[in-house]
Amino acid sequence: MKNWKLIAAALAPDIPEPELARIEPPLDALEAAFRPLAHQPPHQTEPAFVLAIDPGEKE
């Protein structure tokens, strides 16, 4: 699991300690769900910032 205290100290030092403690469990849960997925996209897969949805697209 990530050390959220160190990350917060670097990125968001204004988050008070008790509030940081409250957000650690949901961040841990999201990390556990997302980390196994993070490196799944093949190398050439581009991000979908603008959704390219075509009507009738059925694969």
Partner: peptide, 9 residues
């Protein structure tokens, strides 16, 4: 960014 790449897939 990886989330947005996963989104496409």
């Amino acid at each position: 960014i990886n989330a947005q790449r996963l989104r496409r897939i």
